[in-house]
């Protein structure tokens, strides 16, 4: 459309606005290159230690023999695992995941020989190398979740695999006919796949509550491919790392699968104190 002065303007019309559908197929070559480059940058990279890589390569179907994966997502869940399980000392770092997204920019793999800062770290039990822990503290974007599961579980032997996922969620997101104000927090709820037959030490998460993020992606993967998996979600009113929320996960140690991994109580207390204290010191700017 030409104006009084003759310049051509593009007219914006609501009537031809394709609001929530992105324009496709009309991208220029350059746009396509940028999109492809971005996609490459957002790829999830799983790196295993030389010993694990060797174990994967020597196994008959090139998968790591694995009986148990415990995945903790977020500060409190990873805090629980590091104080109640990792503190026993019989664990070694065996791999990591690096990825890049808008909220986690320094996680891309480095080209130099320095170890890359990773978004998730894998630990392997020294006494039983088929038990893996995965500590995940960083944000994983929606478009990376599927890839995360495919890549991690793609390198594990699934025939006797059992998956446990731990995470926390603000109690304000919990839907209940009563008010969430009167609920005793923190409390645990669980979701499990059809193949998971063991006892769950807490009530199941009832409708209309749902879960999203990495735990949802992992549970979906396990449900679809018939892997026994359970997800424990701790509803809490504290968003930062704190010992009360960490303690709320303790009922999990009553499961046989978890109890044999627990550290002794002296070590637990010591690590718990250290974990909570270090986060407190960082936040006490004015003391």
């Amino acid at each position: 459309m030409a104006t009084f002065f003759g310049e051509v303007q593009s007219v914006f019309s609501r009537a031809v606005d394709e609001d929530d559908e992105e324009e496709e197929g009309e991208e220029e070559e350059e746009d396509r290159e940028i999109i492809a480059e971005l996609e490459r940058k957002r790829e999830v990279h799983v790196t295993w230690n030389p010993e694990v890589t060797a174990a994967i390569e020597s196994s008959p179907n090139r998968r790591l023999p694995c009986s148990n994966v415990i995945l903790s997502v977020g500060d409190n869940a990873t805090g629980f695992v590091s104080s109640y399980i990792l503190s026993s000392g019989s664990w070694e770092v065996c791999g990591s995941i690096t990825l890049w997204n808008e909220r986690c920019r320094d996680c891309n793999p480095r080209k130099d020989s320095l170890p890359a800062p990773s978004s998730c770290t894998f630990y392997r039990s020294i006494t039983d190398p088929t038990v893996l822990l995965c500590q995940c503290n960083s944000y994983i974007a929606e478009d990376q979740l599927f890839q995360w599961c495919e890549k991690v579980f793609g390198s594990l032997e699934k025939s006797s695999l059992n998956v446990t996922v731990l995470s926390t969620c603000p109690v304000s997101e919990y839907k209940t006919p009563e008010s969430t104000y009167s609920l005793p927090v923190p409390f645990l709820k669980a979701l499990r796949t059809s193949e998971y037959r063991e006892e769950v030490p807490c009530p199941l998460l009832e409708q209309p509550n749902i879960a999203d993020g990495l735990p949802a992606a992992v549970l979906t993967y396990c449900q679809v491919w018939q892997i026994p998996a359970v997800f424990y979600r701790c509803y809490t009113d504290l968003s930062k790392l704190d010992s009360i929320t960490i303690d709320a996960f303790r009922p999990l140690l009553s499961c046989q699968r978890m109890s044999r991994l627990a550290a002794d109580s002296a070590k637990i207390q010591e690590t718990l104190r250290k974990t909570v204290k270090s986060s407190e010191i960082q936040s006490n700017l004015y003391i």
């Binding site: 478009d143 979701l191 499990r192 409708q207 949802a216 979906t220 449900q223 997800f231």
Partner: peptide, 24 residues
Amino acid sequence: DCLVPMVGSNPYETDEENAKELCT
């Protein structure tokens, strides 16, 4: 891989047993 992941228990539960099923 095109949908945002979500899970919950059975949205169409009719009894205690089928309420435990997982939906994706």
